[in-house]
Design a protein around this nucleic acid. Structure first.
Lengths: 152, 152
DNA sequence: GTGCATGCAAAACGTTTGCAAATCT
DNA sequence: AGATTTGCAAACGTTTTGCATGCAC
């Protein structure tokens, strides 16, 4: 996971400028308690510290950071794109358990797909860069509620 | 994978009506050569056989079929939602290899995640209903081209 | 006849873009 | 100085909705 200095340096190297809005966006980004943030959520968090920021600036910054590989886009089917900071070690993947009832997203560390990946690269002639595993089901809370109520 | 009769029966059981538009939509749906179809694509295919169909009717039918579990929504980040017919055997899952260069989606049959699922159910206290695995990388065609050109 | 389904047009939604003014380097 | 970035508002493309009419049961 990159730190502020690394991101700023990389931006400069790319020919981008370090404006107050952009710097603040990066700072806020790294301290969000919501790990899977939407642009709207980031926008609100940034605005708490500086009212003079436009939504489109946040969109544009997020876009740049994604191109640079510092954040990744995720889709949890809740209406908007979500992003998360990338791990430094690209092999240190994590997966998502998504509750079909309450929408909660639980992260699961660890890569369990090495054998499968090997098979894919051999049999399918496909160069693997990344992967994403989503597991849908019911979290223990919702399952407990459903066992109490009648299923629907 | 359900057949037309099963879907129609299930619709009736739900109290839905079998209108010509809906029936045609289902028929066309099952003969699409595009396995991962968007609503727009389905709409165009249906319109070839009956011009008197509105886009919103297709949207509404697709929504119902998804609620009923006959089709599943997929997101390949190409701007619109895509759907595919569900397998009858819910354990007969397949995965998607997505080329980062040309966007081609290759399907891969087989479930390789049984051990992982067992672990999740035990350690994370999570009831698994379904899962989705996307593998991003380069298909052999694009990889060949990239090896010829310079990488970018 | 009742209630769900339809087509249309308009609205809604998240996201992107054009622009003139402001800002970074 | 020159090029990038900004905020605003308008545009965008997909999807949803309100509504009066039509149709299946």
């Amino acid at each position: 996971m990159a730190n502020e200095k690394q991101i700023v340096d990389a931006l400069r190297k790319r020919g981008n400028k370090i404006t107050p809005q952009r710097l603040l966006t990066i700072k806020v980004l790294m301290t969000l308690d919501q790990h899977h943030f939407s642009v709207e959520e980031l926008f609100q968090a940034v605005k708490l510290q500086n009212t003079d920021v436009g939504m489109s600036t946040i969109y544009r910054t997020v876009q740049i950071l994604e191109e640079m590989g510092f954040i990744t886009k995720r889709n949890f089917d809740d209406g908007f794109a979500r992003y998360e900071l990338c791990e430094r070690d690209e092999k240190h993947w994590h997966h998502h358990l998504i509750c079909l009832k309450c929408g909660k997203v639980i992260e699961m560390q660890g890569d369990f797909l090495e054998a499968l990946e090997k098979e894919i690269e051999e049999k399918k002639d496909f160069i693997i860069i990344n992967h994403e595993l989503k597991v849908y089901g019911y979290c223990s809370d919702c399952y407990a509620i459903m066992k109490g109520d009648k299923f629907d």
